[in-house]
């Protein structure tokens, strides 16, 4: 089976079969990361452009390493040092870069839907590396890979996503992906940070942390996005941390073998206590490794051949 789509824009539009294929492929790619010589020739001669309108360390580095391990060429564009500061529009920037004949664009943008806009405009592949408050599909996939690796399955698990659901594209991608793969999803956070439309989604909403964590297999802790917190949605960080910060004591409500995920960067002492962040239950570094594997899998599946080998 191969992935029959041009772009990876979000997990909402993906089927469980497609997600399964991506996760299985990523598992095979993980072995390469353990080798001494981390390079395979598969995407030789293909080029990939990363275009990040928002700051990023792990996502961009992870995509670049994934492309390089597969022998693709990469160029990165940071708007702060490019023609964007001269006022070039997203459309013109894309059309200019396109004229240099890359095969795939990886982009992050502060506007929800930006990747969809670009994907519709050009015939090259587009991977959404985060669009506003909409989706961050590769984060959703790497979270699922980390869960699958530790628990051996996703179906039947209960996952609590805790924190600022309202602004979080990570929460949205996780919710779509996990529910498609048969997990139960709980959204846990203060009322002001839970989107009103949550009641129409296939999730349970909790505004009390202890109830929300009762009996869960996985806790996915979201970052409190300090840069998006200027609208008075939280009385204070200290109050948030007292009510919703994940500590060892709080985790006792969850299952004994609970695992904790965090998309990074962590605000230690705010949404997650250092005692949890540094404990083996917290998979934050495994998530980063799995991120490279997932991105390798997506590059391989998108830039690969157009025929199924089985049919050839």
């Amino acid at each position: 089976m191969r992935l029959k789509r041009k772009d990876i824009l979000g997990l909402e539009e993906m089927s469980s079969d497609e997600i399964e294929l991506i996760l299985q492929t990523a598992l095979s790619f993980k072995e390469i990361l353990g080798r001494q010589i981390k390079k395979v020739p598969t995407l030789r001669g293909r080029s990939v452009v990363t275009l990040f309108y928002e700051p990023s360390t792990r996502t961009r580095t992870s995509f670049e390493l994934a492309a390089k391990i597969l022998s693709a060429d990469t160029s990165s564009i940071a708007p702060s040092t490019s023609s964007v500061v001269k006022g070039e529009s997203l459309k013109d920037t894309i059309l200019t870069l396109r004229a240099m004949k890359p095969d795939l664009f990886i982009m992050r943008h502060q506007c929800s839907g930006a990747a969809h806009f670009v994907a519709k405009m050009i015939p090259e592949h587009v991977i959404n590396a985060g669009d506003g408050m909409h989706e961050h599909p590769t984060q959703g996939l790497l979270d699922m890979l980390s869960i699958h690796e530790k628990k051996g399955k996703i179906s039947g698990l209960t996952v609590a996503i805790v924190g600022d659901i309202l602004h979080s594209r990570v929460a949205r991608s996780n919710m779509w992906g996990l529910t498609k793969m048969g997990a139960k999803v709980r959204l846990v956070g203060p009322k002001t940070l839970i989107p009103p439309e949550a009641r129409n989604l296939p999730v349970e909403v909790y505004t009390n942390l202890e109830e929300g964590l009762k009996g869960v297999d996985v806790v996915n802790v979201l970052r409190i996005q300090l840069e998006r917190m200027k609208k008075g949605l939280l009385p204070s960080l200290r109050e948030y941390s007292t009510m919703f910060g994940i500590s060892k004591e709080r985790l006792k409500a969850a299952k004994d073998d609970v695992i904790v995920l965090h998309p990074g960067p962590m605000n230690r002492g705010v949404e997650i206590m250092p005692e949890v962040a540094d404990d083996p239950v917290c998979l934050v570094t495994e998530q980063v490794t799995n991120g490279v594997a997932v991105r390798m899998a997506l590059l391989y599946l998108l830039l690969g051949g157009t025929e199924d080998a089985a049919a050839a």
Binding site: S28, V40, T42, L70, A309, A312
Partner: peptide, 13 residues
């Protein structure tokens, strides 16, 4: 990942 017909056919890894 080392096949020379990778550009035309895609196999499961």
């Amino acid at each position: 990942l080392y096949r020379d017909d990778y550009m035309t056919r895609q196999s499961e890894v």
